[in-house]
Write a protein that binds this DNA or RNA. Structure first.
Length: 227
DNA sequence: GACCAGGCACATC
DNA sequence: GATGTGCATGGT
């Protein structure tokens, strides 16, 4: 028990150190790109396993069609939506997922992200996870970036960075990764927002499947040999 | 042409 | 519970 606690706090310190180095290196990230909570939520679904540049094209198509709102998408055929979001890839799957989310938004919150924001956090997260096409990362992205709830988002880059530092196993569960952040850091929306954005920034540059650790600003914090 | 991208659901063992 | 597979466009 004592051993576990000291392990956890040492991992916790590394979590704080990594944030410090990343923020000093890269500065503010200004995430999430999106004009409204609704746009951020749709973007969270569209960006699943997809480059953000492609998502922007899809979002722009929705804007041009004056359909980037709950009513617009609710009244649209799934096939029509698929055509608009085509650049985001997996367009048939994502059209269904966006439709599922809109259905939930309309039925439970009258189509209002403001109303959704008033929901109890734990309840809302569970309900989001029930929606087809919304898994833990998408749910938490919506909670943090659209609704400003203090929930840490775990993504592929976060997993890779932590596993390469020997802090976590790559295939550890989402919840275990998330718990490490929740237990180590002050529960603060701006902090969580910035930290996750920094993971994506450093990950894109240096922590891809083929890593460039020798160039990474985190290399001095590595406690394991550089691959 | 290969590799990668801010995942998820579903089938199967 | 672990592991494998389909989904698809567009940039490097």
């Amino acid at each position: 028990m004592e051993h576990q606690a000291s392990q956890e706090s040492s991992a916790g310190k590394k979590i704080s150190d990594i944030y410090k180095t990343l923020s000093e290196t890269f500065g503010l990230q200004h995430w999430w790109p999106g004009d409204t909570p609704f746009e951020v939520a749709i973007g969270a679904i569209l960006t699943q396993n997809t480059n953000w540049g492609n998502v922007e094209k899809a979002i722009n198509n929705l804007k041009t069609a004056r359909s980037l709102n709950a009513k617009g998408i609710y009244g649209m055929a799934e096939s029509e939506l698929a055509v608009l979001i085509r650049p985001a890839g997996y367009f048939n799957i994502k059209a269904r997922r966006v439709k599922s989310f809109i259905g939930f938004l309309v039925e439970d919150y009258h189509g209002s992200m403001e109303k959704m924001k008033e929901e109890d956090l734990r309840t809302l997260r569970e309900k989001l996870l029930e929606v087809n096409g919304i898994g833990p990362e998408t749910a938490d992205s919506i909670l943090l970036y659209a609704l400003e709830k203090p929930v840490f988002v775990i993504d592929a880059y976060t997993r890779r960075v932590l596993s390469r530092h020997g802090i976590m196993d790559l295939d550890e569960s989402y919840e275990v990764f998330q718990h490490l952040f929740h237990s180590s850091l002050k529960k603060d929306v701006k902090y969580y927002n910035e930290y996750h954005a920094l993971f994506v920034r450093v990950g894109k540059l240096y922590c891809r499947p083929k890593p460039l650790c020798h160039l990474c600003p985190l290399k001095d914090l590595l406690l394991v040999p550089i691959p």
